[in-house]
Design a protein around this nucleic acid. Structure first.
Lengths: 150, 150
DNA sequence: TATCAAAACGCGACCAGCACGCAACAGCGT
DNA sequence: ACGCTGTTGCGTGCTGGTCGCGTTTTGATA
């Protein structure tokens, strides 16, 4: 599932894009770094190896990579967007209370997708925005007497 | 279903908040105005009757109204948040291609909510972010030869 | 009806997240 | 090695929203 940097670089060339240091480092950070990096976090990672890379370069690279279908971005909440490889696309469940993020099982959306398609002709792409809710832990805390987090 | 301004004003007083001109006008705009107004659109509506109301006043009022559970906000896409009365809360389906917004049938989320609860202990609140996808019209256009929107 | 503390307001400054224009630079086909 | 053109660094700008501060307004009380 997880692509190598070289494979992604090949995708770039196939798409007619050039392969630059900054671009390769962005891909490396996406392949080897944390799970849901923001543009800012990617910038930091890139700068550990190439300190002069500018923020707008990272934004432009992410835009280009997204155009080529190499990466996708997802909104997990009110903060900045998070990025990951298109091959790792998946839905997200985010707890409104504690902010915990979990990957949604692939089939969780199936019944809803099928219903939307059949009843409305609407083809769900439920990966772009997270689905919010309350995680098991926070639901338990809310039921308990002392905690009313807010 | 749709509350009156007076009822909402009563909710404000119950919550310990004062009732000001700006606040009443925000509520009026929410009750009588378009379906998914942004803060900016609410500001414009308010200003038709009270031209000197400041943007930050509208933002602060919406924040306070949300804290009191009178209104909720929803993100329909990458743009500004949209607001509506808490009594009218519902899920949204937004077309990634043409931007069309539709209200999701209440039961569309049922199977998914039940699955998330049973398998992950996660209580879905699927109203805060829209669920994206491709609407029937755009799906038809994409299938047709000439169009490949992007 | 007058008083007054606290809530809300107007205003401007500020912030995050990101887009853009431009000149210099660098990838890569030749 | 050359040159075309995509990419970069840098600054500047934009949108959507927040914050601090001094003034005004609300509404409980006298």
């Amino acid at each position: 599932m997880s692509s190598t940097v070289d494979e992604l670089v090949a995708q770039l060339r196939d798409g007619g894009s050039r392969v630059t240091t900054a671009r390769r480092l962005v891909l490396t950070a996406l392949v080897k770094g944390a799970h849901h990096p923001t543009a800012e976090e990617l910038l930091v990672a890139v700068r550990t190896l190439a300190p002069d890379v500018h923020a707008s370069t990272v934004y432009r690279n992410l835009e280009e990579l997204e155009r080529l279908g190499v990466v996708v971005h997802t909104h997990l909440g009110h903060g900045p967007a998070t990025y990951h490889l298109a091959t790792e696309a998946h839905g997200h469940l985010v707890c409104e209370v504690c902010g915990a993020t979990m990957e949604a099982p692939e089939d969780l959306f199936e019944a809803m997708a099928e219903g939307a398609k059949r009843r409305l002709g609407f083809e769900l792409r439920p990966y772009h925005f997270a689905v919010l809710g309350v995680c098991a832990d926070c639901a338990a805390s809310a039921a308990a007497p002392e905690s009313s987090v807010g």
